[in-house]
């Protein structure tokens, strides 16, 4: 693919491309909280130890 340039002829910043890439942002925006909050949370809940007061 040809290199895209901005008005002053310099190549477009990779940050601009990243911010324009809504699909990538979507994947990250789902993946990060899913991992940190949901999956870790499910793990925490299911690893709750049984009460030692009950035999």
């Amino acid at each position: 693919m040809a290199q895209e340039n901005d008005s002053s002829g310099e190549p477009i910043s990779k940050w601009e491309k990243f911010y324009d890439n809504i699909f990538l942002l979507f994947i990250l925006g789902m993946g990060i909280p899913f991992t940190l909050y949901t999956i870790w949370g499910v793990y925490e809940i299911f690893s709750t130890p049984l009460s030692p007061l009950v035999n």
């Binding site: 990250l28 925006g29 990060i32």
Partner: peptide, 10 residues
């Protein structure tokens, strides 16, 4: 916001 705001549910 997109990356980090949702974990605040905690």
């Amino acid at each position: 916001y997109i990356l980090f705001i949702n974990i605040a549910s905690e």
